[in-house]
């Protein structure tokens, strides 16, 4: 009875992702861009829910909406934002660039549609335990490396931003 819900929500989230993503690229209002980026991430979390990856969806919201968007907003508020025309490089070649982009992007999108199988698994179950199991057994070493990377990023960010005179 509720079969129509999945395509409906998919269309909704796809519209959100592509619309908000395009707005991030095209708009000239930096706070609006940051918020629309958060909307893209939230719609992406919805996509993950449709695919049955609920843990990933929650992590997506926690990390992207709760932390990365805030960091970007921090960057926006600490710097002076001036509006200026798009870059020097594409100033004269804009039509050419658009044409090239469409020529490159179209085949990929058309190719993507050739996967006809339904994406959602028939047997639904939480992805929490399989995810955790593979993360802490098969991928334990990459996991540790990732933690070292995060530590390095933490230290690096502090060192970069710290003023010398303090």
């Amino acid at each position: 009875m509720f079969d129509f819900l999945e395509p409906l929500f998919f269309a909704l989230f796809a519209l959100g992702i592509i619309g908000a993503g395009a707005a991030v690229v095209l708009l000239r209002r930096i706070t609006a861009q940051a918020l629309l980026m958060a909307l893209t991430f939230a719609c992406m979390a919805g996509m993950f829910l449709l695919l049955g990856a609920e843990t990933i969806a929650l992590f997506q919201v926690l990390i992207y909406v709760g932390a990365i968007t805030i960091l970007i907003l921090f960057g926006v508020m600490f710097t002076k934002q001036e509006e200026r025309a798009y870059g020097l490089f594409f100033q004269k070649q804009a039509p050419l660039a658009t044409g090239l982009a469409v020529i490159v992007a179209l085949p990929v999108v058309i190719l993507a549609f050739s996967f006809k199988d339904p994406a959602t698994p028939s047997a639904r179950g939480s992805d929490l335990i399989p995810l955790a199991t593979s993360l802490f057994t098969d991928y334990a070493f990459p996991f540790e490396v990732a933690s070292v990377l995060l530590l390095a990023a933490l230290v690096g960010a502090i060192v970069l931003v710290k003023r010398d005179d303090q």
Binding site: E6, V24, A101, V104, A105, V109, F113, F115, P118
Partner: peptide, 24 residues
């Protein structure tokens, strides 16, 4: 149900949008 290709297409479109943004 939604075919796998639809998800991949959305992913591709967003990727190209992002790439265009980085360049432009």
């Amino acid at each position: 149900t939604v075919p796998l290709g639809a998800y991949i297409a959305v992913s591709a479109v967003l990727f190209f949008l992002g790439a265009a943004g980085v360049l432009v």
